[in-house]
Write a protein that binds this DNA or RNA. Structure first.
Lengths: 187, 187
DNA sequence: TACCGATTTTGATATTTGTCAAAAATATCT
DNA sequence: AGATATTTTTGACAAATATCAAAATCGGTA
């Protein structure tokens, strides 16, 4: 899904808004395993994913923990860094060759001021993300490892082929050994 | 903190905006243990808490699970119900005699259209809530029961006196027996 | 103040998941 | 295709936390 068709589904994109968007955004091609945002840097950009798959991860006890996956038609950023204007605690990398639209923070702020109706998009995106996060928290708090995995299979089936076992396990908050046993046990 | 002084810290509140706010909001007094939003109803309102303490909870396996606490100067709503326009999966109740400002969903939408600068407030509130939720998710995923409790003590010390052990335990995702043992063990 | 119900604490045991180590399977590169 | 690196699976055991039951404590009220 292109960035423009996504936006058009939320607000009317006038010619002048479109021109402004073109001037502040930039298309970015990243290869598989290529880092997009490095940990401890400021993440100044919001990325819309036109094609491909990216993930955010960080290290906890020396191990990579995948914090989120984002695929075609979704946004990716180190939300905390982007909003709070603090260094990113996570690295963003592409899991596949991907095409991203880069939206710099400063450009977005300019956009909000010049086209106040775009604040609506920012709010709607944030709300949607909040709900997803809330669902994930509830799942983590009340579902056991197997139930969480089953839920993942239902909600993100395409990622089963596109992400590794270890990446999925850490996203679900379990070890890869446990996930491997869950897969073996369910037939 | 009053609702108006809170708003004024984010945007300029003109006289006409103030008048509109007065027309769409309503002050609500609720007593201790009184329900504010019942489970399975639509939660059509956002509440700003001028005084008191409220919590959201639901039932999981027959037990009450406290999903959040909100005190003076914070907002409370069943976010999912309010945003997604679905029935609430949680009940909101006052833990103390409280004074709330009720902001109905329809009034808020009207406000966004009439005063586009208020979209900004909606976005900023949602962003702040997102970051808090993300911190909580990380805590749940990587901290053990004791660390989570210690973090709670540091970040919400006043709630230690105002909420019960069982309410705090379920909020932290542990049983009240475990929390009781944590308290006994740390001296 | 003494009682009653609710909340908190303590104890014994069970369950889930993690840890560490090694083997097996799979993917990658030349 | 073969060699090597990476990922996944399997096994034995350990740790954290849950469960169930009962005792102790607390708080409000007659």
């Amino acid at each position: 899904m292109s960035f423009f068709s996504y936006l058009s589904s939320l607000i009317h994109v006038s010619d002048s808004l479109k021109a402004e968007l073109l001037s502040i955004t930039e298309e970015l091609n990243v290869g598989r395993n290529e880092p997009i945002v490095e940990i401890n840097n400021r993440c100044n950009d919001l990325f819309f994913i036109e094609k491909g798959l990216v993930r955010g991860f960080y290290y906890e006890g020396g191990k990579e923990i995948t914090n989120w996956f984002a695929q075609e038609g979704e946004f990716a950023t180190c939300f905390y860094s982007f909003i709070a204007i603090k260094p990113a605690f996570e690295t963003i990398e592409a899991l596949e060759d991907s095409i991203l639209i880069r939206i710099p923070h400063a450009g977005l702020e300019k956009l909000y001021l010049k086209f106040p109706e775009t604040e609506r998009v920012g709010r709607i995106i944030t709300e949607a993300y909040y709900i997803k996060l809330e669902e994930r928290l509830l799942s983590l708090q009340f579902k056991n490892a197997k139930e969480r995995y089953q839920n993942f299979v239902l909600s993100k089936p395409s990622l089963l082929q596109r992400a590794s076992l270890g990446q999925i396990a850490s996203y679900l908050g379990i070890t890869q050994e446990t996930l491997s046993r869950i897969r073996a046990g369910s037939h």
